[in-house]
Design a protein around this nucleic acid. Structure first.
Length: 486
DNA sequence: AAAAAAC
């Protein structure tokens, strides 16, 4: 499925090992290998190479892996194998006990994991069902009552089915918690605890998390039994394939800035992240008004609308998906060349997740974030977490230039003495800014000079731009902010 | 502070 990344040159020992390995060297059943063959998969990814043998041994696993690493296949292939190998050992097969349970934090992710599991198990007798809220319960109930071995679920709806007695978890041998850090963030712990109380004490546990916070370590210590740690990417690290930049704008310029960036770079298949549901909707509306094919996806939309938006985006009918953090994790959408943070996320970890939507599977990606004066603290948190400084650039036509009374970029001399606060300038923001259509290059960059050992030095802009020196005092101010951070 | 997830 789209879950398995393309191969790139091996870099780590694990990757080297994975390169010489083939799926048929794990002792997987012919039915599974056949499904893999049909999809053209021969070599496992690093996390698959590490996870498959360990899961097959029946060990608990704590996996630190971002999406796009082949994580889903990493756990679903061996659990399919385990369930096949120990088929029908249940004393009461008529009761159709669920034998493996996969929990995810969002409905879309549940759906996606289910699609993968179904594809990998299609030649086996195993049945899988996906269960999440926002849609009619009756069809789910019917499938569950008919009997399934594997359930993929969001916690709330699963507990609903438990209350209705349409699902029996008393003989579940394997529990998989996907995106466990997200589940904690979202306050799923009580539901998680309730579900775990329904499971047999003796079972195999697999927990996956993109980041490795103290809370996750605590959860792992309480739910996992002597787990094997599997780590592919450096934890809390962002992909080296992703070029990260920051553009400073004023709050009321953000929507225009996003439209501008999309148009100027000719971006297609971009996720724009907003911190709020209302913000996401507004940005989408604004982009549509500017003739950009955009739509919003967030938790206030019906499940039908959410699925339709995602489908339209995957098909390319919608080019810009404006999303809340509902889409930050897990969703595997191919060909994501760029992610834009309309707002910087409140949690630094969410930054990692959001920009993890691009630069997948060895491809290059751009992560563009807008920030305002108020975001300095968030920025220092983010830079601390990812252990690198993000290059700060300025966006022509914004902050200091043509959004205002004059519809052209300010000259250097004009810009130099200009107060940054709009009220001081006694100016009214322009409501709908139309970037110049002609071939006036509206971009300029003020490269922020990173500290000597910063990784940001390797970052190059994605578009050709003219470069201008940063004023010494401004540079000092920027540096000052960063020095305090580290 | 806000997002997500059950009716």
């Amino acid at each position: 499925m789209t879950d398995t990344p393309l191969k790139t040159a091996p870099e780590t020992v694990a990757e080297l090992a994975a390169d010489t390995l083939r799926f048929d060297s794990f002792g997987l059943a012919p039915e599974i290998l056949r499904a893999l063959n049909e999809q053209g998969y021969v070599h496992p990814t690093p996390i698959q190479a590490q996870a498959i043998p360990v899961v097959l041994q029946g060990r608990d696993v704590m996996g630190a892996a971002q999406t796009g690493t082949g994580k889903t296949a990493g756990f679903s292939l061996p659990i399919i194998q385990l369930l096949m190998a120990h088929a029908n050992t249940s004393a009461s097969p008529a009761r159709h006990p669920v034998r493996a349970l996969i929990l995810t934090p969002t409905r879309e992710l549940a759906d996606q994991v289910a699609e993968n599991v179904k594809a990998y198990s299609r030649h086996t007798a195993l049945r899988a069902a996906v269960v999440f809220g926002g849609v009619d319960m009756a069809p789910q109930t019917a499938i569950l009552r008919n009997g399934v071995e594997i359930v993929i679920a969001t916690p709330g709806r699963l507990l609903d089915h438990v209350a209705q007695k349409s699902v029996n978890l008393s003989q579940t041998q394997i529990l998989i918690m996907d995106e466990a850090d997200r589940m904690l963030d979202m306050g799923f712990l009580p539901d998680l605890q309730r579900i775990i109380n329904l499971l047999p004490k003796q079972r195999q546990n697999l927990m996956f998390s993109a980041t490795f916070s103290p809370e996750i370590k605590k959860l792992s210590a309480s739910f996992l039994n002597n787990p094997v740690s599997i780590e592919v990417a450096r934890s809390n690290a962002t992909s080296e394939n992703v070029t990260q930049v920051l553009y400073k704008v004023e709050e009321d310029e953000k929507r225009d800035a996003v439209a501008f960036i999309i148009r100027e770079r000719g971006l297609k298949q971009v996720i724009v992240f907003s911190n709020t549901k209302i913000g996401a909707s507004r940005v989408a509306v604004h982009l549509v008004k500017q003739g950009i094919k955009a739509t919003a996806i967030h938790g206030d939309k019906s499940q039908q609308e959410r699925m339709a938006a995602l489908e339209a985006f995957k098909r390319g009918e919608v080019e810009i998906l404006v999303a809340t953090d509902v889409a930050a994790r897990g969703l595997d959408i191919s060909e994501m060349p760029c992610v834009i943070n309309f707002d910087l996320p409140y949690n630094a970890e969410d930054y990692v997740h959001r920009i993890g939507r691009t630069g997948r599977a060895g491809a290059k990606g751009d992560a563009i974030s807008l920030h305002t004066d108020k975001d300095e603290r968030l920025l220092t948190d983010i830079e601390k977490l990812i252990k690198q400084k993000i290059v700060r650039l300025q966006l022509a036509g914004f902050v200091a230039t043509s959004l205002h009374t004059e519809r052209r970029p300010f000259s250097n001399s004009e810009r130099a003495g200009r107060p940054s606060d709009r009220s001081e300038r006694n100016e009214r923001p322009m409501r709908s800014y139309q970037p110049p259509r002609e071939k006036i290059d509206p971009w300029f960059l003020k490269p922020y000079e990173p500290s000597a050992n910063s990784q940001a030095t390797t970052i190059k802009p994605a578009v050709k731009l003219s470069v201008e020196e940063v004023k010494p005092q401004k540079k000092a101010a920027l540096l000052g902010g960063l020095v305090k951070a580290s």
